[in-house]
Amino acid sequence: MRTVFDDAAVRLYHLDGDSGAAATLLYGTLAEALAVAAEQPAEVQDGLFLQTSNDVVAYLDFIES
Score class of each variant (00 low, 15 high):
residue 59 Y to F: 15
residue 52 T to V: 08
residue 42 A to H: 12
residue 56 V to S: 14
residue 55 D to F: 12
residue 45 Q to F: 02
residue 5 F to H: 08
residue 27 Y to H: 15
residue 25 L to E: 12
residue 3 T to F: 08
residue 11 R to C: 01
residue 59 Y to R: 04
residue 53 S to N: 13
residue 56 V to Q: 12
residue 52 T to K: 07
residue 6 D to S: 07
residue 39 E to R: 14
residue 47 G to V: 08
residue 43 E to M: 07
residue 6 D to G: 01
residue 30 L to K: 07
residue 46 D to V: 05
residue 32 E to M: 09
residue 20 G to P: 09
residue 32 E to Y: 02
residue 11 R to M: 00
residue 14 H to I: 02
residue 32 E to W: 02
residue 4 V to Q: 14
residue 54 N to Y: 11
residue 56 V to I: 15
residue 58 A to N: 13
residue 30 L to T: 13
residue 31 A to G: 00
residue 49 F to K: 09
residue 35 A to G: 01
residue 53 S to Q: 09
residue 65 S to Y: 14
residue 46 D to T: 08
residue 31 A to P: 04
residue 51 Q to T: 07
residue 27 Y to E: 15
residue 40 Q to V: 00
residue 53 S to H: 13
residue 30 L to Y: 08
residue 43 E to D: 15
residue 14 H to D: 04
residue 25 L to G: 03
residue 45 Q to L: 09
residue 10 V to W: 02
residue 13 Y to M: 03
residue 39 E to L: 14
residue 62 F to D: 05
residue 63 I to A: 09
residue 40 Q to T: 03
residue 56 V to M: 09
residue 64 E to N: 07
residue 46 D to E: 12
residue 19 S to T: 15
residue 40 Q to E: 14
residue 18 D to H: 03
residue 38 A to K: 13
residue 11 R to K: 02
residue 49 F to H: 14
residue 8 A to L: 02
residue 38 A to R: 12
residue 44 V to W: 02
residue 58 A to Q: 07
residue 17 G to I: 00
residue 62 F to K: 06
residue 43 E to G: 01
residue 56 V to N: 11
residue 12 L to C: 03
residue 17 G to F: 02
residue 35 A to Y: 10
residue 31 A to T: 11
residue 23 A to K: 06
residue 7 D to K: 08
residue 29 T to F: 06
residue 27 Y to W: 14
residue 7 D to T: 13
residue 61 D to N: 13
residue 65 S to C: 07
residue 2 R to S: 04
residue 14 H to V: 01
residue 26 L to A: 06
residue 64 E to K: 12
residue 40 Q to S: 04
residue 55 D to L: 03
residue 8 A to D: 12
residue 51 Q to F: 01
residue 57 V to L: 11
residue 12 L to G: 00
residue 65 S to T: 12
residue 18 D to Y: 03
residue 59 Y to K: 07
residue 42 A to W: 07
residue 62 F to G: 04
residue 32 E to G: 12
residue 15 L to F: 04
residue 21 A to F: 04
residue 1 M to I: 04
residue 21 A to V: 14
residue 25 L to P: 08
residue 47 G to S: 15
residue 9 A to F: 04
residue 52 T to F: 06
residue 13 Y to Q: 06
residue 50 L to N: 08
residue 45 Q to H: 01
residue 38 A to G: 13
residue 49 F to R: 13
residue 45 Q to R: 15
residue 21 A to H: 13
residue 6 D to C: 01
residue 55 D to W: 11
residue 29 T to G: 05
residue 7 D to W: 11
residue 29 T to H: 04
